[in-house]
Structures are given as C-alpha cells and as structure tokens.
C-alpha cells in the first residue's frame, strides 16, 4: 500500500475544473498498464484518490492522469505544479480490452463506438489512441461520440481533431450551446443513429455519468448491439484498489477488482438500475 513517488513533468488545464498531470517516477521505470485501468494518486498529507490512466500504453513517456476537482484530494492534486510530487499506486482493475494482448487482430475487424460524457473521455483516451493507431493496418472502424454540458467542458480537443484526421469518425454534441457553437446540440445518444456504425458488428465502450451510460447502453442494445459487447466503466468510493477495504462494492462486485470496466450485459445492467439509497 506504499506509493511510488512520481514527479509532475507537465501540467495542462483542460477546463475550469479539470487538470491533466503527466507523471514520471522519480526512480525506476514507468509502470505498464492497459487503457481503462486506474491508479491511486496521493497528494502527500491530504490523501489518496482513484484516477484513471488516460495515456496509451503504446506511447512511451510519462503517465497521464486527468483530475477533476471534486474534493479535497483531487483539488490538491489539481494544484500541484510542474516539479511537484505525487504518490502513485497501481495499475488496478480491468481494462477496455482493446489491446492486441486480449484479442487477436483478426477478430478485431469490427466497429468500435466509443461514447464519452464530459470527463468520461479520460479513461477512454488510451483506448481510442490504441484503436486509431491500428487504422492504417486495416483495424476496425472507430467512432468517437462525445457529449458535454457546454462547449467549454469539452476535453482533449486536440486529440479529437487528431483522431478525426487519422480516420476516426468524431462527433461532438453539447446540451447547452454557447453563441459561438455551430456543432450538434442534444443528448449524446442522439448522435448514435447517424454515426454510421454497423450495430450487428459493433462493440461499444462507454464512460460518463451513470445515467448517461444507462441510457446509451439501452439505446445501443435497441439498435442491435450485442449487450455483451457493450462495456461500461463504473465508479464507486475506492480507498485501497486491492480488494481489501470494501468501499467499492456494488452488489456482488468489488469494482476495484471486478471493474471498473465491466460488460453491461447480465448483472451489471441490473446493478446499474438498483436504487441503492
């Protein structure tokens, strides 16, 4: 449970409450990880929180974590400047299963639709990078659908543009447009119908607020996507990442161990529709 000390080598402000930190270990090699997994990040003296890895395993270089300022620890992390230190434990949990390790390329000639809500793009970023990188070799088509409350909340704009240039279909929608917004306005699910993927041969990777994932998952299944091919990334209170602290339970799941990425089919769709209050 002891973290490895990392140094902040770059820091980018993404929105008014999201900061991306690039971290390098003070000693030793960078950890290996899979897109979708998370680390426990420590702001020394304040505490520790679970933050997804948003880099692509194929990229050498620092670890990337996008942190949203929602509590004492995440605020402290957001305020650490370049040169500062962060404790890192991980990587933990399940991944999006997009790297060749998991599936051979040959069965991978299919469409992948990635649906992100707000900062939900962060845990998906590495997966999209991996998928887009396979496009020149004839990998399956990639559709990236992003929903945000308002244009200023759209993260990773440069990545979105780069993915589009590389051949991915990138669609963005906002709930509340600004006067300068000329793009699509509406719920992110309204992008599904015209995106152009073939539901019968599609896998979907979803990350965002649970309400958004529930609605999107149902819409995809209604379109004919196999529920087993719909993956969602779930979040609960995480304090250890090791399956020891009990906080991350969602029914029969320990999300640090059985998640965060789980297939929507079966028990998960039921658990997501449990009113636990």
């Amino acid at each position: 449970m002891t973290p490895v000390v990392h140094r902040v080598v770059a820091r980018t402000r993404e929105t008014d409450d999201v900061v991306t930190l690039c971290l390098e270990p003070v000693d030793g090699p960078r950890m290996d990880f899979l897109p979708g997994q998370f680390n426990m990040l420590s702001a020394f003296g304040v505490g520790e929180v679970a933050i997804s890895l948003s880099g692509a395993p194929r990229d050498v270089g620092p670890l990337r974590h996008s942190v949203r300022d929602v509590g004492a620890v995440s605020r402290a992390l957001c305020q650490i400047e370049v040169g500062g230190v962060v404790g890192v434990r991980g990587p933990f949990g399940t991944d999006w299963r997009v790297t060749p390790r998991e599936e051979t390329r040959s069965v991978d000639h299919r469409d992948t639709v990635v649906v992100a809500g707000g900062i939900g793009l962060a845990p998906l970023r590495g997966a999209v990078c991996e998928l887009v990188a396979t496009l020149p070799e004839g990998g399956g088509r990639v559709f990236v659908l992003v929903g945000a409350r308002e244009p200023s909340q759209i993260v990773f704009g440069e990545d979105l543009a780069a993915w589009a240039r590389a051949g991915a279909t990138v669609l963005v929608s906002v709930d509340r447009p600004s006067s300068l917004w000329h793009g699509h306005v509406g719920l992110v699910t309204t992008l599904l119908a015209d995106a152009g993927f073939n539901p019968a041969n599609t896998r979907a990777l979803l990350c965002g607020p649970e309400i958004m994932m529930r609605f999107t998952a149902r819409a995809l299944v209604d379109m004919g996507v196999n529920p087993l091919a719909v993956l969602v990334s779930l979040e609960r209170n995480m304090q250890c990442g090791l399956g020891w602290c009990g906080h991350c339970q969602l029914g029969s799941l320990l999300l640090c161990r059985d998640g965060p990425v789980v297939p929507y089919a079966g028990i998960v769709s039921g658990l997501m529709n449990e009113r636990e209050r």
Binding site: E210, I211, R214, R218, R236, N273, R275, E276, R277
Partner: peptide, 30 residues
C-alpha cells in the same frame, strides 16, 4: 414505474402528486 423495466401499464392520476425522476448514485433522485 421503474426506469428500465417493461412498461405495460399507464396511470390516470386521480389524487396526489408524483414526480418523474432519474436515479443516480451518490445524489438524490433528479
């Protein structure tokens, strides 16, 4: 009625108020 479950009924309200809402973990129903 419960979100996500099969809808085979509708209600003609006679008395009292009901709210149409969405549940989300970690917050009151919206």
């Amino acid at each position: 009625c419960r979100e996500g479950e099969s809808a085979d009924t509708f209600y003609l309200l006679r008395r009292g108020h009901a709210s149409i809402q969405v549940h989300a973990p970690g917050r009151a129903p919206i």
